[in-house]
Write a protein that binds this DNA or RNA. Sequence first.
DNA 1: TATTGTTATACTCTATAACTATA
DNA 2: TATAGTTATAGAGTATAACAATA
Lengths: 138, 138
Amino acid sequence: MDRPELGFLLSRLMREVMAREKPILDAAGLEMWDYAVLTALAESDAPTQAQLAASTGRDKTRLIGNLDRLEARGMVAREPDPADRRNRIVSLTSVGAKVLRGCRDAIEAMEAELLADLDPADRAAFERALTALAERSR
Amino acid sequence: MDRPELGFLLSRLMREVMAREKPILDAAGLEMWDYAVLTALAESDAPTQAQLAASTGRDKTRLIGNLDRLEARGMVAREPDPADRRNRIVSLTSVGAKVLRGCRDAIEAMEAELLADLDPADRAAFERALTALAERSR
DNA sequence: TATTGTTATACTCTATAACTATA
DNA sequence: TATAGTTATAGAGTATAACAATA
């Protein structure tokens, strides 16, 4: 039979990674999307919610529920932009940054373990190629 | 900021691959899951539907709709196992094999194009590592 | 009684379209 | 009127549990 396809291999690996991330996020009381939002905000504040939705790939209406929960728990702040009060500037709070840091560390450790058995050269090439390929979907 | 995470990169790439596969499958009138089922059956007939569900990662009840459609279009056959008539042996028909072959060729071409820009050594390492990693999720 | 396949029900997630407040 | 955010509605996808046939 033929070599397995990229989509097949990726979905398999994706399932594995998500399964290993889930207990980490559960422990922090975060959903997968909450985590994606916090990660995006760690890079820089979002000038509008619509922009945050676009940058995370989340639907703008569904993003609201995540922000509501994260704001209620003090992890993000939403403030009206003084220049145009229709916009809400979304930012990470120190609490959010701390929670994010904890998850990120645990996830990095999980990834290191997942990749540990690979030949070091293969591993570097894998990360390089994956980064380059992921760039395409912009 | 930190290096992007595996999950982030994988989901990005996954989205790109799926976007590129969609028009190919649309042209054949197949859903993503139909294609996964045909692919699994190409390797070998499924002795039971439950087993086919397990091997494709699909829910056993939702598999039924896919099989209904594929059977109606003559792409798969369901016959009761003479040894235990509760079981349905699912097999690929010649029509199904032909449709599958067409999609597979188109998808392989799409993948080749997607990977074309990579350094050849990186590409080989990427495929090797991805295959090894996907193996873990069994 | 236990198991395979099927159907039915409820639940979650997603997408679309109204609504409000600002401009 | 146009846009950002919100809410409400409808649709697709998923999971769970009941059902029929066979063992």
